[in-house]
Design a protein around this nucleic acid. Structure first.
Ligand SMILES: [Zn+2]
Ligand SMILES: [Zn+2]
Ligand SMILES: [Zn+2]
Ligand SMILES: [Zn+2]
Lengths: 140, 140
DNA sequence: AGTATAGTGTTATAATATAACAAATTTTTA
DNA sequence: TAAAAATTTGTTATATTATAACACTATACT
């Protein structure tokens, strides 16, 4: 049994379960208040679980939002290579799985030829649904 | 005289000046403690200046560090299209100016064909100087 | 069984960021 | 140039996000 298949601890399961249930990214203190009934009482319990889940790639941190979202790509690399699109209007986040873009990022070298271990890319725009709403509003 | 050439306010100048003096990104409260002698007394004065400087593209926020760094690319776009390399070891940040990469990012569309307004990309690795130090250490 | 590693529960506190409001300054427009 | 609008300031208080430290428990490894 290799390390990666080791099962999650109680708190890790509770936190992951809550994050996976949510379509949108969730904030640490929102997780806390929502899992208190399950026996998680204090911030460190949440943050420890988050740290571990991030480390093993089950979730990602959305840096521009201080929020956390379940990984949508089963074999997401660690150290992390993540790409998200983020709606400026409703703040919904989608994880992007685009092989061509991944290749461009993986192959990138800086001026010194440095190879990077990982990256995080966040695209910002207006999602389809919000764009439609905006069009609706200009009609009236 | 267009809007972009309008001069900065007193606090904005003080904050920008401090950020530009630093090779590494700086934190908001470090800015605060370093400019108190210039008459900036409280966090909102710093954060307001930061917000404005970010908006006009004079500085960028390094999302993974909660820190702020002067723009090294004179004509950096707003809304922002930023690429950084970040050393995991010394946390030094370099702004990357790579036309080919910029083009790849600019041309990217998601599955729905959405065009994005901006993006932020952070690469993580070990900088040349830190890599050399590591090699030195393994010699002994 | 014994040791090492990882996880738990808890309290306190650090670090980062914003709300709200009155006053002053600068820019725009009439 | 005077009035109106927009921006910036100074200030106090508070919200939000995250970690330190410590004693203890559970699990995995040899
Ligand atoms: Zn993922
Ligand atoms: Zn949206
Ligand atoms: Zn820039
Ligand atoms: Zn370094």
């Amino acid at each position: 049994m290799n390390k990666k298949s080791k099962s999650l601890s109680k708190n890790q399961k509770i936190v992951l379960d809550f994050i996976q249930k949510n379509k949108k990214p969730v904030k640490a203190y929102s997780i806390l208040s929502n899992v208190q009934k399950k026996g998680i009482n204090a911030p460190p319990q949440v943050y420890r679980a988050l740290d571990k889940l991030i480390k093993i790639g089950k979730i990602h941190r959305v840096e521009s939002q201080n929020s956390f979202v379940a990984c949508k790509i089963s074999n997401c690399d660690t150290p992390h290579k993540t790409v998200f699109s983020i709606c400026n209007s409703c703040e919904i986040v989608s994880e992007i799985n685009d092989p061509k873009l991944f290749k461009n990022l993986k192959d990138f070298r800086d001026k010194d030829g440095t190879v990077f271990d990982g990256y995080n890319l966040e695209f910002f725009g207006t999602c389809k649904s919000c764009k439609n709403k905006q069009i609706e509003n200009t009609k009236h």
